[in-house]
């Protein structure tokens, strides 16, 4: 625990977040780039362990990175990345439209909420992966399976957040707009939508993260294209370094898409933080 920190009187350390007088040791810890150091240490440890222990499932980090570069240089790999991206973009776009519309309807109309609530919640908490064989049985090896997997992974969290956002719009705001004679359409456009934006965007970002997971899982399970298929193939060849390299690509993809979503979020909800 905090014993790792250079603290002179560990026994007298008060509960950390308490408003105790600030002591110099904290400013030192604050200035150290702990995150970077920790990441560096972890990488080194991995490298050393990989080299010395010679375990098949733990290739040295340098080897993984080398494989990453090699893979990115290959035409076929790039084609697979594009195929994955395509499924991600289309699937996520469908989730977005569907999730926002259904969520908004559920938030606005009690009857719609009452009708759909249990299904949305059940599918939100149930392990979505179990549906993949079902989709495969229905759609076969086609794009229908890949897209529907992305959609079921992403859509429910978008629905739930949108619904909650609409339902929790401050009624005082709506009453205020009514008092100024605003029309229903005006209230939706100028009050409800902006007011629900932070929660909606949170749902969209969660949905995007889940879409990436759905994309890769679907590809691993049922198709022969995309990053997931690549990972599955290297896995069956026991080329663990390449499996890690593909995972790294997916991680980068997740980070980039999340960053993009964050940019949009920041633009739309700058007022809220």
């Amino acid at each position: 625990m905090a014993a790792a920190a250079p603290q002179p009187t560990a026994s007298a350390a008060p509960f950390d977040p308490a408003p105790a007088p600030r002591r110099p040791r904290r400013s030192l810890a604050r200035r150290l780039p702990v995150e970077g150091l920790s990441l560096l240490a972890g990488s080194l440890l991995w490298e050393i362990a990989g080299r010395t222990m010679d375990l098949p499932w733990l290739p040295p980090l340098s080897m993984i990175l080398a494989d990453l570069v090699t893979l990115l240089g290959q035409e076929s790999v790039r084609a697979n990345i594009m195929a994955s991206l395509q499924a991600l973009v289309i699937g996520f776009a469908i989730s977005l439209v569907f999730g926002l519309v259904v969520g908004a309807l559920m938030g606005r109309f009690r009857s719609v909420e009452a009708a759909l609530d249990i299904y949305v919640n059940a599918l939100l908490v149930a392990p979505t992966i179990i549906l993949i064989p079902v989709f495969f049985a229905i759609f076969g090896l086609g794009d229908g399976t890949r897209l529907s997997v992305v959609v079921v992974y992403a859509v429910f969290v978008i629905i739930i957040n949108t619904m909650t956002a609409i339902k929790t719009v401050d009624p005082a705001m709506v009453e205020m707009a009514r008092a100024f004679g605003a029309s229903e359409a005006f209230i939706i456009r100028k009050v409800m939508i902006p007011a629900s934006m932070p929660l909606v965007m949170a749902g969209v970002r969660l949905g995007l993260g889940r879409a990436v997971k759905g994309m890769i899982t679907g590809e691993m399970l049922v198709t022969f294209v995309g990053l997931g298929a690549l990972a599955a193939r290297f896995g069956s060849q026991f080329d663990m370094s390449k499996v890690f390299a593909v995972s790294l690509i997916v991680l980068i993809l997740a980070a980039v898409t999340n960053w993009l979503a964050q940019l949009v979020d920041d633009r739309l909800t700058r007022w809220a933080d």
């Binding site: 509960f15 920790s38 691993m220 990053l227 663990m240 890690f244 593909v246 995972s247 991680l251 997740a254």
Partner: peptide, 30 residues
């Protein structure tokens, strides 16, 4: 409780939150 531990773990937290686990399954099998 400990800010240092928290900061040390934070990069790994971020990675684990973002990474899809499915591709790692072959590694566990190996």
């Amino acid at each position: 409780r400990s800010r240092i531990l928290d900061r040390a773990l934070s990069p790994y937290t971020a990675i684990l939150l973002a990474i899809p686990v499915a591709p790692l399954v072959p590694i566990a099998i190996t």
